[in-house]
Amino acid sequence: MQPHTQNWTQVTEFVMVGFAEVYEERFLFFTLFLIMYLFTLAENTAIILVVGLNHRLQRPMYFFLTHLSCLEICYTTVTVPKMLAGFVDVNGGKTISYAGCLSQLFIFTFLGATECFLLAAMAYDRYVAICIPLRYGSLVSWGTCIRLAAACWLVGFLTPILPIYLMTQLRFCGPNVVDHFFCDDSPLLALSCSDVTLKETTDFMVSLAVLLASSTVIAVSYGCIVWTLLHIRSAAERQKAFSTCAAHLTVVGIFYGTLFFMYVRTKVASSINFNKVVSVFYSIVTPMLNPLIYSLRNKEVKGALGRALSLKSWERK
C-alpha cells in the first residue's frame, strides 16, 4: 500500500508491462501467442458448429460442451488481444483506461467463475448418465440443461460484483504501471494507496466459495461414479462408462489445478513472473487444449469432425 497524502491524484489509466523482460524476443512471443489464440478460436468455433449442425450430437453432454467452447472463446479474447498489443508497443507495455481495466477484470472473473460452475454441471450430467441411467431422461431434460446453463452464467456474472465494487472504492495515486499482461487483482492491489485488507479478504472468500462449491459438486459426482464403476462386473462396460467422462475429468484437473494454485495460496508463494506464467497457462493454454482433449478422447466428436471435413473436401472437388 502506498502512503496516502492530501495531494493525491486519481489514476485515470494504467500501463500494462506485459512481458517486458523478453523484449528482445517480443516478436517471437507475439507470433507464438497469436498462433495459439487463432488456433483456440478455430478449435472452439469448430466444436460449436459441429455440435450445432450434427443431430447425433444433440444431447445434454454436447450442449454443455458448446457452452464451454463459447466461454473459452470469450475467455481468451478478453486478455490476449491486449497482451498482443503490448508486445508490439515500443515501451513493452500498453495503456488501458481505469474503466477499461476494471471492465476487463470484471469480465475475466465472470467468465472464470462461469467455467467453474459449467464444469460442475457437466460433472452432474455424467453422474446421472452413469449412476442412474434409467432416470437420465427425466433428470437431465432439455429444460433442465437450459436452466443449469443459465444458472452457471448468472451466478458467474454475480460473482465479481462485490469484488469490483470494492475495487472502485480504492484510491490509485500512482504509480500506474501494472506488472502483468492483463488487469488482475494482485498487481492492481499492489498499486493502491488505500487500505486493501477488506478487498483482499473479500477476494479470497469469493474465490474460495466459487472453487469449493463447484469442486464439491464435481468431487461428489465423481465419487459416486467411481463407486458405481467398481460394482460393474464387466471390464469392457466399466471401460466404456469411464471413457465418457475421461475428457471432462482431464479438463477439470488442469483447470482447477491452476486455479487453486493461483488464487488460494499464501503471499510467501507469490512471485510476479511465476504468476504470469501460470496466468498464461490457464488463460491461453488451457482454452487451446480443452477442444483437443474433448475431440481426441471422444469418438463421436472425432467422427463428426471427420465427416464435416470429408464433406468439405468432397464439395471442393
Rank of each mutant, 00 (worst) to 15 (best):
W8P: 11
T9K: 11
T9D: 07
T12H: 06
M16I: 04
Y23L: 03
F27S: 15
L28S: 09
M36S: 12
M36K: 09
Y37K: 02
L38N: 03
F39M: 10
N44Q: 06
N44P: 03
T45S: 12
I47A: 11
I47M: 09
R56C: 04
R56A: 09
P60S: 08
M61E: 14
L65A: 11
Y75P: 08
T76D: 04
M83T: 02
V88N: 01
G92S: 00
Y98R: 08
S103A: 14
F110S: 10
L119K: 00
L119Y: 04
P133W: 04
R135A: 15
S138L: 02
V140A: 09
I146G: 09
A150N: 09
L154N: 04
L154Y: 11
G156W: 04
T159G: 05
P160G: 02
L162D: 03
M167D: 09
R171E: 12
F182D: 00
C183L: 00
A190N: 12
L191N: 02
L191V: 04
S192G: 03
C193G: 13
D195C: 06
K199Q: 15
K199D: 14
E200N: 13
E200Y: 09
M205E: 05
M205C: 13
A209V: 10
L211S: 08
L211Y: 11
S215M: 06
V217L: 15
A235E: 12
Q239D: 15
A241P: 02
T244M: 05
A246P: 03
T250I: 14
V251K: 08
V252I: 15
G253D: 04
F255R: 10
T258K: 08
L259W: 11
Y263A: 10
V264R: 05
K267I: 10
A269F: 14
S271M: 03
V278N: 01
V280S: 12
Y282T: 03
P287M: 01
M288A: 14
N290Q: 14
I293Y: 03
N298E: 04
V301K: 04
G303D: 06
L305D: 05
R307Y: 07
S310M: 07
L311Q: 11
E315D: 09
E315F: 05
